[in-house]
Design a binder for these strands. Structure first.
Length: 801
RNA sequence: GCGGAUGUGGCGGAAUUGGUAGACGCGCCGGCUUUAGGUGCCGGUGGCUUCGGUCGUGGGGGUUCGAGUCCCUCCAUCCGCACCA
């Protein structure tokens, strides 16, 4: 074994072995009785080359995968690429290079680096979501949802960039502007495809109790769904002879509703008032970007409509307004305004000189708290919480309202007017309408086009030969849908495809899927806390309803890692502080880069990259290497009585097992191995040779999940065996406790002495030993001990007056 | 505003059930080795100190024999959502 640690020598060696022997492949064949564990990191979006965030994700995931394998699990640990999407298309617009080519190049770079990192991936299941063999089944699943009316087409307001002449996805709108050209985005009404995720709002909420996810992610999803309970109340408008329903979470304040407000988009606004003033107000509101309109402390503007509605509880006529602080998308697009108990209504009332009528006693107005009701007819004196239900019941009995629930969540707009995405497998027929492409004609392949530039419709529309087709139903002339799917559709089911990735007759074999799903441990960045994780949950539930899967939740446990920064700032090309994993892997080796990112702190927290810190970790690995290179010839089984070094090795086993297994604490796991290696160097002259070898082999075994190449090499050098084939070591509980311990002597809770005491002493003996402390005697100074607290094996505290 | 978190040396961070605060690493200081060194190794390293001690985990209060840890309160920072009725 060479004296120097040379990662460049050993890392490729082990990578080749794992490659040629297909070490990390796992079979779907029955017969393996070990329990399954599906460990999955979020699939990367292949753009350019991997960044530090990827290194972190896959380092954490790989540590977990290795740990579970060696703890007797049959581990599925696959890899793929989320390969459709905008960056490749933008690149194509700039360079003319086909997105398939740039994406392919990027995938190869990712694959190359993942191998260079030594991540234990089952490569036999690899795919990219842009492969026709994959998106064929994305289309197939889309059609299943379409058949159940869970996918539908409808007019919707979308973000439109007037300069690029294209519809933008929400994520392409940055601060109300087009991310590409910076032009202010406008709203437009266009026909779009949607998934009916809102039908699943309650189940998406309720089932979060069944999964082990971080509280902040659960909270974010809960927030995003935004369930509000309240009532729908009818307000009669005699002028148009209509009842307007409004949603309110505060039916108890109904007596305080002194005016009524409609959103500018409300279709009845022109019918109520077509004056130039109203038209101008609506026009301005509609052309304003969502961003401008959304500023909270903005002045409350609005125009009176000149008509009234009847407050159903008081019979009072209250004036109608149009104002842009009311949103068409939420509730019914109209509200009852209770200025005394709502800040926004209060601001509007102040500005427009409207009556503010208190109906709940309490602090100054606007008052949002609880209290007894006033000016509320028969409910006067009742506490508002109590009146809440009573008023709803009363409204119901009069036919003026009913309990209602509203959600912030909207249906998922999935169509994109873009080239580089999965084609929507639908045909438009003048006679038959929307017709599904038959399953046996899937995939609807993405055709090659010359021009990817946006023109206000999908670039696919220019592929006339492709667009023109026959109607599968009537055989007549028809045209293909030219929109493509949001890439989040592709990533909403990829984890199921891994289970049976080469199946070409179905997206998966249900028996195989049942074997592996759900994912036992999902790992990824918190930036996907809402969209991806919500969509994947929705897909799973919808597929469960279709009988295609037999579980309700895709990811039993979720781990979200913190972001990696540099000098405290988010890494970005414009700041010039981007750290490329490649640089460090080339300079120090993959093991160092991986260990460093796992050592800076708990992976759940953010980490700031520091070059000095990398050096430190590299020194540690080199020290472990040297300990092995200098290990004396001897047996690996510790001979004779256990020494302090053997005890330390068992302590490290225990520590790493609990830290890594229970709480993903990779940083303290690695520090435990560091302590063990430090002790080896400290004691290697004095300890029995077999003890030294045992300690070094143990260190290699424990470091393997974090530094697989070094772990394998050192372990093999010492034992001749392959560390990944060895079961995870078990700590001998009897060796975790030393013969003696440091007995802490406290006086009034303050430390004053430490005494060497034999382990397992009786309480009385422990107290007696503590009393023997000279420092105690000198400090007691004749004072009277009024109480003695003995914590066995730890301390004795004397309480003195 | 609502929701979620975090606050410990010069820095990243330990302390898992209330029981030795600062493990491990960086940096710094001193020493040794060497073929030069910014390499390697060994030792030290919270503040103050009259070297006895004493103060110390964002501030203030409380519970307890004992609080970084539990409770109340205030402050600061970060993240998500936000004119959602």
């Amino acid at each position: 074994m060479p004296d120097r640690y040379e990662p460049k020598q050993i890392e490729p060696k082990w990578q080749d072995i794992w490659d040629h022997e297909r070490t990390w492949e796992i079979s779907n064949e029955p017969g393996d009785e070990r329990p399954k564990s599906y460990v999955l990191e979020m699939l990367p979006y292949p753009s350019g080359e991997p960044h530090i965030g990827h290194l972190k994700t896959y380092s954490v995931g790989d540590a977990v995968a290795h740990f579970r394998r060696r703890n007797g699990y049959r581990v599925l640990h696959p890899m793929g690429y989320d390969a459709f999407g905008l960056p490749a298309e933008n690149h194509a617009i700039r360079t003319g290079q086909h997105p398939r080519e740039s994406t392919q190049a990027s995938i190869e770079e990712f694959r190359r680096q993942f191998r260079a990192w030594g991540v234990s991936i089952d490569w036999s299941r690899e795919f990219a979501t842009c492969d026709p063999e994959y998106y064929r089944w994305t289309q197939w699943l889309f059609l299943r949802l379409f058949e159940r009316d869970l996918a539908y087409r409808q007019n919707a307001a979308v973000n439109w960039c007037p300069k690029d002449a294209t519809v933008l996805a929400n994520e392409q709108v940055i601060d109300g502007r087009c991310e590409r050209c910076g032009t202010l985005v406008e709203p437009r009404d266009l026909e779009q495809w949607f998934f009916r995720i809102t039908s699943y709002a309650d189940r998406l909420l309720e089932d979060m109790t069944d999964i082990d996810w971080p509280s902040n992610v659960v909270a974010m999803q809960r927030n995003w769904i935004g369930r509000s309970e309240g009532a729908e109340v009818k307000f009669r408008c005699e002028h148009l002879d209509t009842d307007y329903a409004v949603f309110t979470t505060r039916p108890d304040t109904l007596f305080g509703a002194t005016f009524f407000v409609m959103a500018p988009e409300h279709p009845d606004v022109p019918k109520l008032n077509d004056s130039a003033e109203v038209q101008e107000y609506v026009r301005r509101a509609l052309t304003e970007s969502a961003e401008e309109r959304g500023v909270e402390d903005r002045e409350k503007t609005g125009v009176a409509l000149g008509h009234t509605v009847t407050n159903p509880v008081s019979g009072e006529e209250i004036p109608m307004y149009v104002a842009d602080y009311v949103l068409m998308e939420y509730g019914t697009g109209a509200i009852m305004a209770v200025p005394a108990h709502d800040e926004r209504d209060f601001d509007f009332a102040q500005k427009h000189g409207l009556e503010v009528r208190r109906v709940i006693e309490g602090d100054e107005l606007p008052y949002r708290g609880d209290g007894p009701m006033v000016s509320s007819g028969r409910f006067d004196g009742t506490h508002n919480r109590e009146a809440f239900g009573q008023i709803v019941d009363w409204l119901g009995s009069e036919g003026n309202g009913e309990p209602a629930v509203n959600y912030r969540l909207r249906d998922w707009l999935l169509s994109r007017q873009r080239y580089w995405g999965c084609p929507i497998p639908i045909v438009h027929c003048a006679k038959c309408g929307l017709v599904a492409v038959p399953d046996d004609q899937l995939p609807v392949e993405l055709p090659d086009v010359e021009d990817y530039a946006p023109k206000g419709k999908s670039p696919l529309a220019a592929a006339e030969d492709w667009v023109r087709t026959d109607c599968p139903t009537c055989g007549g002339e028809a045209r293909r849908e030219t929109d493509t799917m949001d890439t989040f559709v592709d990533s909403s089911w990829y984890f199921m495809r891994y289970c049976d990735a080469r199946n070409d007759t179905a997206p998966w074999d249900p028996d195989v899927l049942r074997e592996w799903m759900p994912v036992d441990q999902y790992i990824g960045g918190v930036e996907h806390a809402i969209l991806h994780l919500m969509y994947a949950r929705f897909f799973t539930k919808a597929l469960a309803d279709l009988g295609l899967v037999c579980f309700q939740e895709p990811f039993s446990r979720l781990f979200t890692q913190g972001m990696v920064t540099r000098d405290g700032a988010k890494m970005s090309k414009s700041k010039g502080n981007v750290v490329s994993p490649r640089t460090y892997v080339e300079r120090y080796g993959a093991d160092t880069a991986r260990c460093y990112i796992l050592f800076v702190g708990h992976p759940i927290d953010g980490a700031d990259w520091s070059d000095e810190g990398v050096e430190g970790v590299h020194r540690f690995l080199a020290r472990l290497w040297r300990a092995a290179a200098e290990a004396p010839d001897a047996d690996n089984e510790p001979a004779g009585d256990p020494s302090a070094l053997v005890r330390k090795a068992h302590w490290a086993i225990d520590k790493v097992t609990r830290d890594l297994g229970d709480r993903f604490a990779t940083h303290t796991s690695i520090s435990a191995v560091m302590e063990l290696v430090n002790d080896v160097h400290r004691m290697r002259e004095s300890a029995d040779p077999s003890h030294v070898r045992f300690a070094v082999a143990t260190a290699a075994s424990l470091v393997f999940p974090f530094a697989p190449h070094l772990g394998s090499e050192v372990y093999e050098q010492l034992t001749g065996r392959r560390v990944w084939e060895e079961p995870w070591p078990e700590a001998d509980a009897s060796l975790l406790e030393a013969d003696t311990f440091q007995l802490i002597v406290q006086l009034n809770g303050k430390l004053i002495d430490r005494i060497e005491a034999p382990s397992g002493v009786e309480r009385e003996e422990q107290e007696r030993l503590a009393l023997g402390s000279e420092r105690l005697a000198s400090r007691l100074n004749g004072g009277e001990i009024v109480k003695t607290i003995v914590v066995p094996g730890k301390l004795v505290n004397f309480v003195v007056k």
